[in-house]
Design a binder for these strands. Sequence first.
RNA 1: CGGGGUGUAGCGCAGUUGGCUAGCGCGCUUGCCUUGGGAGCAAGAAGCCGAAGGUUCGAGUCCUUUCACCCCGACCA
Length: 586
Amino acid sequence: MRFSQSFIRTSKEEPADAEIISHKLLMRAGLVRKLASGIYIIMPLANLVIKKIENIIRSEMNAACAQEVIMPCILPANLWKETGRWEVYGSEMLKIKDRAEREYCFGPTHEEVITDLVRHEVRSYKQLPVTLYQIQTKFRDEIRPRFGLMRAREFTMKDAYSFDISAEGLDINYKKMHAAYCNIFKRCGVKYTVVDADTGAIGGSSSHEFMVIAPSGEDAIVYCDSCRYSANVEKASTQIDKILGPEIPAGSSAAAPRSKIEKIHTPNASTIDDLAKFLKVDKKSLCKILFFTNGRAENDGREDVVALISGAFELNEIKLKNHLKFINLEMIPSEEVQKRVGAYPGFGGPIGINPNVKIIADNSVKHLSDFVVGANEKDYHLKNVNLSDFSVTSFADLVMVDAGHPCPQCGAKLEKARGIEVGHIFKLGTKYSEALGAKYIDEAGQENPIIMGCYGIGVGRTMQAAVEQNNDQDGICWPMPIAPFHVILVLLNSSDETQKQCAEDLYKKMLAENIEVLFDDRAEKPGFKFKDADLLGIPIRVAVGRYAAEGKVEFKRRNSKDLKVVGVDEVVSLVKSEISREINGL
RNA sequence: CGGGGUGUAGCGCAGUUGGCUAGCGCGCUUGCCUUGGGAGCAAGAAGCCGAAGGUUCGAGUCCUUUCACCCCGACCA
């Protein structure tokens, strides 16, 4: 490609609405353009990168025996109503109607469609297992799109679905996909880590996320250096007894009140920190109360709950939401807490509240004795409270794990980092096959639901994550396997006939050798071209300049300061060996 | 959806005690000059001042409504 004829539009000025480095670089290097909030045009250069990522994905999927299909992006509503997700997915789904007022959505994910396909095509165990995938445009009407392709509303996703006759079969497929994903991200040249994850709206029994580590990542993860445990904080657990001491066994003498409950005056101490300071005790011995609701109207199935947790921890709302099986979880507005729950915000406690309100307690509460709770009266708390003083509806792990907490596996201190979720794999089990009646007949002639897994990769997000991880103050530094071009050939002085002839010859030679080369033949000054070359981040730069008269050119790697002057006749083979080493050697 | 903010040339911005012809930098066009890290000079093109309504002799500027976009939260590949 000749730069002079290309549709590459670079800019030295930063766009006003980009926050993170990769978004700025994507804009400055002319890789993407925004059409509307969360909706982007992929420019020619970015398209080259995306096609490379897609082809890496394809080769690994095919190697894992997955077969590519293309499902529609406009999906009929009835399938979604069958699984109940027409409601559950809610306003994140873009719903549309045709001229006959029939309802459709623009597909946000494809479990329903693929399961519908398989229930019609598969009858016998002999047809299983099978894994299908597609690379296709999705639309999710995100509440807040941001960071360019990082959280776009319209985006390209690779989604794969496996169908098995047994849990063991699913395990095998899940491991295969896990390995394929590792290969894919490694081949894309990004540093990633795999973490235990929450399954969210997709559902299923277990899942792992593939995270590209970057400070700008939207997810927090914790990991353990000594045993390699790692998890999204949404999912992570810890060892409570290492922090609070052993659990107090229910019904034992220790669980019985040791001292009488005592009402204490605690003026203005309405937060855990204030209260701990006021009472001169550790936060551990306090019990925090939080008020939640499923957000529905009073006469439309509203359910209010309170959650209890040791003052030593923060509450993880995702864990609570999963435990309650709520579609929605919101905090009750503090001005309504008294009326709805019968507790006094800031001085709230589980004793004496509205008996219809469920009390969900974190497991950490089992480790507390003679603790402090609010008295449900302004400026008063109760001390010497124990679990036997009120009735807990259910216990659950509700802890938000943080850096420094003990690793759930080995007890070492956990570290915290941020990551960009580029891939997510799920063991779905029979959630969709049962809802849609996707069954097979086994050897004994029995009908059973098919056991499913699903596996997603955000293609555009992976591209941007690669930029987020591979850049410097001058621009992008593409990893070789996904670089839009392998080489940028820069003619430094286009009015110098010797240089020009030399560069044109080299360009032809490289094309003849099938080298992916961008030829900067523009009549610009050298400095201008160097800046563009750095911004675009093409891994190898060959510059034709003042040494052209001696039959020599300059060879430079984007991610190194070293400049080599090499003969025109040897540069092509040098370029070729660098490219093949980095693409095949990874 | 709740909270905060911004809409003026392709991009980044100034101009808002109402006033005459709406400006600056970058980019763009033409010419000259220049060619090793985003050169210089000269000439030029480019704006329904987000949209609609109102107040006024007069609105980019004031009022009302509306739309779009961005940031903080929940959601996700």
